[in-house]
């Protein structure tokens, strides 16, 4: 059964994480999930708005939620931070007073009725058996699924998976025919936007993740967040210069892996856009 959603891409998916955007759209189409980008959307506020002004942190997501409410469909979000911002705002605005105040600020008429879900929930739950649609099983590929700190937290807001050992992405990976690596740092922080202000912290945290994934035998890391991706992928060479751990580890969006398994080419999945080149790995596994 086709289910239709509104789609909020967020700024990253239209810029640095275009491959996440493209692969999401292609995979959803292939699985018969109808997603339509919101006609008009604005910044979610990301990591800065709410830390400067609580109300700004609520008002920006409120504008997007109002757009979604107009469209009348549940809202699916791919970026972990955008998801967190909108979901959190929607949660906070369950309080009538908060909602009224936000509407007063935005001049809007938000009723806060839209269901906000993350892309992973849609991919997993609405197509419980896509094993049949897998054309090219990702045999012999060991994937460390990295959820990051925001995706499944906090419990009362996101709450769709275990906080410390989530499984939703691992389930998808296993259904693709690949092996999901059991590792201990699935929900540890990558350093996020501190890359701009405190580079050493990010180097340390991201290095810890890459090292652990490699130690546990992963061939690559699967992510569902543009910022996690950029920290782990783009700065891998810089990290290597500091820590000398050897061998690079490709970092792919979960949707890119899905696309690959569903029969799209690495090129269609824009895999050539990554700084840590995944193509040698894919060739060695006979996937490219």
């Amino acid at each position: 059964m086709t289910k239709s959603y509104s789609f909020y891409p967020g700024c990253a998916l239209h810029a640095s994480a275009r491959e996440y955007d493209v692969s999401t759209l292609l995979v959803c189409r292939a699985l018969g999930i109808e997603i339509t980008e919101l006609a008009k959307w604005t910044c979610c506020g990301a990591s800065s708005a709410h830390s400067f002004d609580t109300w700004l942190g609520l008002a920006l997501p409120a504008l997007d939620l109002q757009e979604a409410e107009k469209a009348g469909r549940p809202l699916v979000i791919a970026c972990a931070k955008c998801y967190s911002q909108l979901k959190m705002a929607s949660h906070e605005m369950q309080n009538r007073e908060t909602l009224d105040n936000v509407n007063h600020l935005t001049g809007g008429v938000l009723k806060n009725t839209t269901e906000v879900v993350h892309l992973l929930q849609v991919l997993n739950l609405d197509s419980p058996d896509f094993t049949g649609t897998v054309k090219r099983p990702l045999k012999d590929l060991k994937v460390a699924c990295y959820y990051g700190c925001l995706l499944v937290r906090p419990k009362d807001v996101a709450g769709f998976d275990d906080l410390e050992d989530p499984q939703i992405m691992d389930d998808i990976v296993r259904k693709l025919g690949a092996e999901s690596v059991d590792w201990g740092l699935k929900t540890e922080c990558c350093g996020a936007s501190l890359m701009v202000t405190n580079r050493d912290v990010v180097m340390n945290l991201s290095h810890r993740l890459l090292r652990q994934a490699k130690q546990k035998g992963a061939d690559c890391v699967a992510v569902a967040c543009p910022l996690c991706h950029s920290n782990l992928d783009c700065y891998q060479k810089d990290i290597e210069k500091v820590y000398h751990d050897g061998s690079s580890l490709p970092v792919l969006y979960i949707t890119q892996l899905m696309g690959l398994a569903l029969g799209f080419t690495p090129k269609e999945m824009l895999m050539d856009r990554h700084l840590t080149d995944p193509l040698p790995l894919l060739r060695s596994k006979g996937l490219a």
Binding site: W183, G184, L185, E188, R211, Q212, Q215
Partner: peptide, 14 residues
């Protein structure tokens, strides 16, 4: 403690 994970033969306690 926020996390315990294996690193080689040791455990790392964060």
């Amino acid at each position: 403690v926020s996390r315990i994970y294996e690193d080689g033969k040791q455990l790392v306690v964060l």
